[in-house]
Computed example of a mutant assay.
Amino acid sequence: MSFDDTPAELLAPELESETELAFEGALRPSSLAEFVGQVKVRGQLQLLLTAATMQGRTPDHILFAGPPGLGKTTLAMIVAHEGNRPLRMASGPAIQHAGDLAAVLSSLVPGEVLFIDEIHRMARSAEEMLYLAMEDFRIDIMVGKGAGATSVPLELAPFTLVGATTRAGLLPNPLRDRFGFTAHLEFYGDEELERVLSRAAALLGLDIDKAAIAEIAGRCRGTPRIANRLLRRVRDYALVYSTGTGTADVHAVRAALELYDVDALGLDRLDRAVMEIILSRFDGGPVGLNTLAVSVGEEAETIEAVVEPFLVRIGLLTRTPRGRVATAAAWQHFGMQPAAARSMQDDL
């Protein structure tokens, strides 16, 4: 059966998937002028790219560091697009041997941009190969084994390496020092997030007012990726419960986010589970990381890398040498009191 003869009901999921992928691509700005937020980084990056174009050379190697969802991958795509250069994308966890990296580097064309996401998770042997590649655009390949092994130099085409990391402290100093420009991405303010959401709503064809956009912006943890995800859930809610009109007001936003367990501060189910364990079971702490992870049924790394940074940033949790401790703001937000305060009230 040909594609033209395929029943419409079988084509629907495929067409829907293509639509969603097209939307994801449309959400990513293609130029620095379209990119919202990170004003200082955008200015620095614009200068670096413009100078490289004027001098007819490849831009310096670039490292983007910061929490997930702030636009590191998007900026890497913009670096390639602004210079009209091809882009090669790779992932640090997938490069587990020097040979994996050598295969990628040897196939680059002149001026190509190589983007390595989570670059701090590359194998150590690959990192050491990258030192020479970044500085001299060549690598040394070992041929043979044992006493008869020889090193054969392989010249590489000039390229720009763009690395992205959520854990800049895990990068070895020799690798970090070889980047000509390191950009530290910051969390977004509410005004910037409202601009991100307004643009995404227009692409979605969602009729949403300013108050509703502000409500979403206040709950997305300063992260554009989360903002776009919540907006799509609000779109779905408005489509289902607004008689198919797809109109979203502040009441629809609150109802949708309540349905998906996102509260007024942006806390989700796991955030609240962590805080409630600390407050109710351990009377505010201190609680060790491993004890906390076992109590909520999650990996310690997930708690440390995903949950804690946000809770610390908004002032609900502090880290001490003895463990995690809830703040007074946490007790107030969850409407609870420490055991000492409850005991004092009982005595009165």
Rank of each mutant, 00 (worst) to 15 (best):
121 R>W: 02
129 M>A: 08
66 G>K: 05
84 N>P: 06
65 A>G: 14
128 E>W: 01
146 G>Q: 03
127 E>L: 15
178 R>P: 12
114 L>R: 02
186 E>R: 15
130 L>W: 00
77 M>R: 15
178 R>L: 12
76 A>W: 01
72 K>S: 06
73 T>N: 08
133 A>D: 04
139 I>S: 03
165 T>D: 04
122 M>Y: 10
101 L>M: 08
135 E>P: 03
106 S>P: 08
128 E>M: 13
74 T>R: 01
126 A>C: 11
136 D>Q: 10
87 L>P: 06
189 G>K: 08
146 G>M: 03
162 V>T: 07
118 E>T: 09
92 G>K: 02
176 R>H: 12
115 F>V: 04
92 G>S: 04
169 G>T: 13
65 A>E: 10
173 N>G: 05
110 P>I: 10
169 G>L: 10
158 P>A: 11
169 G>K: 13
65 A>K: 04
117 D>S: 12
119 I>V: 15
115 F>M: 03
66 G>C: 10
103 A>W: 02
93 P>D: 09
146 G>H: 05
115 F>S: 01
121 R>L: 13
104 V>C: 03
140 D>R: 03
150 T>S: 13
142 M>H: 12
84 N>D: 14
97 H>N: 09
76 A>Q: 05
188 Y>S: 13
77 M>P: 01
137 F>N: 12
74 T>I: 09
186 E>L: 15
124 R>D: 07
168 A>G: 06
132 L>W: 01
122 M>V: 07
158 P>T: 12
101 L>I: 04
87 L>T: 08
90 A>I: 09
111 G>L: 02
170 L>F: 14
70 L>W: 11
182 T>M: 13
144 G>E: 10
115 F>P: 03
178 R>W: 10
107 S>N: 13
121 R>Y: 06
140 D>Q: 11
68 P>W: 06
90 A>F: 05
95 I>D: 07
114 L>Y: 02
168 A>Q: 07
97 H>L: 11
183 A>C: 15
139 I>T: 03
67 P>Y: 11
161 L>D: 01
125 S>A: 14
141 I>G: 08
187 F>P: 12
89 M>R: 14
160 T>F: 06
95 I>W: 07
155 E>F: 00
115 F>W: 03
91 S>H: 09
184 H>D: 15
159 F>R: 00
128 E>I: 11
135 E>H: 01
75 L>C: 07
133 A>N: 03
179 F>W: 06
95 I>V: 13
123 A>H: 12
152 V>N: 06
141 I>F: 09
186 E>Y: 11
74 T>K: 02
147 A>E: 15
99 G>Y: 04
64 F>A: 00
146 G>T: 07
63 L>M: 11
86 P>E: 06
